[in-house]
Structure formats: structure tokens, C-alpha cells
Design a protein around this nucleic acid. Sequence first.
DNA 1: TGATAATTGTTATGGACCATATCAAATATC
DNA 2: GATATTTGATATGGTCCATAACAATTATCA
Lengths: 173, 173
Amino acid sequence: MTVSKTAEKSSEKPGDATKGRKDAAEGLPEALQLGELSEQLGYVLKRAQLKVFENFLRCMASLQLTPAQFSVLLLVEKNPGRNQTEIASTLGILRPNFVALLDNLESRDLCARIRSTNDRRSHILVLTDKGKAVLTRAKKLVATKHESRLNELLGQANREALLGMLSKIANEF
Amino acid sequence: MTVSKTAEKSSEKPGDATKGRKDAAEGLPEALQLGELSEQLGYVLKRAQLKVFENFLRCMASLQLTPAQFSVLLLVEKNPGRNQTEIASTLGILRPNFVALLDNLESRDLCARIRSTNDRRSHILVLTDKGKAVLTRAKKLVATKHESRLNELLGQANREALLGMLSKIANEF
DNA sequence: TGATAATTGTTATGGACCATATCAAATATC
DNA sequence: GATATTTGATATGGTCCATAACAATTATCA
């Protein structure tokens, strides 16, 4: 290739930086230019997702619920009596990886596995009383501390539009 | 708690399912109800992000570039002469984890580390000629096969609105 | 019916990604 | 010039994701 190691062809562009990045004359650290990166959907999407999860975890710190755990509780509440395979697959979680997740929820007495009498292979999932109570509190925290910030930031209409577009991507892309 | 193991309190709600989930009378598998889950920003955001990355990888299969690798090439092209710490940090990658990523790009002759003469600790990053050529091809693939699908799916105006809102979340949340 | 195939939950395992501690070399600070 | 800081790097552990394989149970069907 054409790049000589330990070379220092200095000064060519405004974004040049080959001689002392810090500050040519005791200036600022000079922030980088994102350029086309800020137009890449995947990049922005990932960063936004990380921020949202981060905020979610902070809001849920008192209940110690991760986004995945919360989604399981929500889905089991809405669909009581389903087995592990059904709950896991609709969440995009592979059965092997769902076991430890459930072990955790069950050890905390939030969810229970009940061996089905019809198909004794499968475990039917149900929320415990404690699980229902925790989920109720979790929903309130999410609504008041998490989703509400989105409304402040984007506005109600925009927030709904965002959700609609993301759903479209998730389902039709 | 109050859940009896191996219990089968059948029939109570429309979403009941304690007796034979498959099909009570040879019906369909009965899809689960997502319920409030489809209103959770984090949930939809994560699923959309996975779909977008998945599509990105397919579009880039011929060039074998991951989203992270692509973002590094883009950033180095836009900011030639910066060192590893600077490139990594603006991408949210920790320096230790950036080493292997760069090793990969350098071994494929897409990017080069050049020891700076000003600060002999740091490695200045530059795209090789091959790296520039590959990046050019990558940009075309992304534009024609990846981002274009977003326009088809959402429309130009909506796509821009989506990007704007995600950026706002990524930066101000 | 009984032999075979399929399903369910589970374990084991490996890979990718992320985070922290630590190190040597080089530089900055005082 | 002694000490602290920075840079790239290694080692390591954690979490998440994916595959193979297994025992128990059920479905299939000759």
C-alpha cells in the first residue's frame, strides 16, 4: 500500500492534524467531525437505544428490573398460561437463553413455572402476587419517569409518530 | 406465595390457556398479545435497531463490513490524523476494545496506524488507498440498498424526521 | 399397538460485545 | 529530575446471543 509508517506529511486540509492533535497553539481539544455518520440510521438508532436503556435502568433501579425482565413480566401478565417457548419466541429470546432469565424472576418470586397437566413437557408461566405488584409499580415508574421524559423531549405527537415508524421498521424492514 | 404448583385453574379470561395451548379444537397456534409492550419505546427501539443492523450486514456482505467497522472508516476518513483514543471515544468505544477492531481493519489493509512524530505514544489513523476505495463502495451500497429502503418504507420526509428525533434522544436524553 | 419422529425445557459451550484493572513507553507537570 | 498523566495494549470477567445435544414427554403413523 501507499502509507509510509512513521510519516508526517503535514498540512493539507482544514481537518488536518498530523502535528500535535491536542492544540497547535494551546487551543481546545478540537472535537471530531461526525460527518456522514450522523446521517446513518443504524448509528443514530443504536446510540438512541443505548441512551433509552440506560435511562430505563436508572428509573428501575429501585425495582431492579432490566428491560428484558420487564418485557417478560408484561407479556406474561397479558398472556397468562403460556409456556416458556411461546413467551420467549415472541420476545425474540432463544429458549436456552430464556432459562436463566426465568430462573432469576422465579427466584425473586415474581414469576412461577407450573407444569402443565395437558402437556407435561411444558411449563406454564404465571405472575405471582408479588410479581403483579412489582409490575404495577414498574409500570408507574416507567410512565412517570421514563416515557414522560420522551414527551417532554419530543412532544406527544412526535413521540407517537416515532413509535409508529420504529414499529414499521421492526415489522416490515 | 399463592401459586400452587401443578395447578390447573381453567377458564377465566379470553386469554386463558391452561388447557392445551396448541389448539383446543384443532385451531391455530393463537398468536400472543403484545399489549403494552408495543407502546414501550425501548422495546420497539431495540427491535428496530436489530432489524436495521441485520439489513446492514446483508447489504455489506460483499465487503464484509460490520456497522462498527463502517463507522470507524467513515470517521477516520472525515478526521484523518486523529489517534486511536480520539476515534474510539467519539464512537463510544473503549480503548481496550478498539484495539482488536483496528487490528482487523489494519490486517485487511483498510486502515493504517502511523506512529506520530510529535507524540510517540499515539498512533495516528489514516485510511489506506484500499480503505478509501472500499469505503466508497460501501457508501454506495448503503445508499442504494440500505438507506433507500427506509425511504421506500417511510418516505423521505418521515425518514428525516425519524433521524432528527433519534439524534435528539441520543444527545439530550 | 409400538417404533419413530417431534417438542419442551435444560445444559454445555463458544462467540461477540462491553467494562475494568494493569502495564510499558512516552510525555507532561512541577 | 522525580512524579503524575497519557497512549496503546493485554488480560480478564461479565453479559448477551447462537448452536448442539440431552432426557422427558408427546405426536405420528405403519
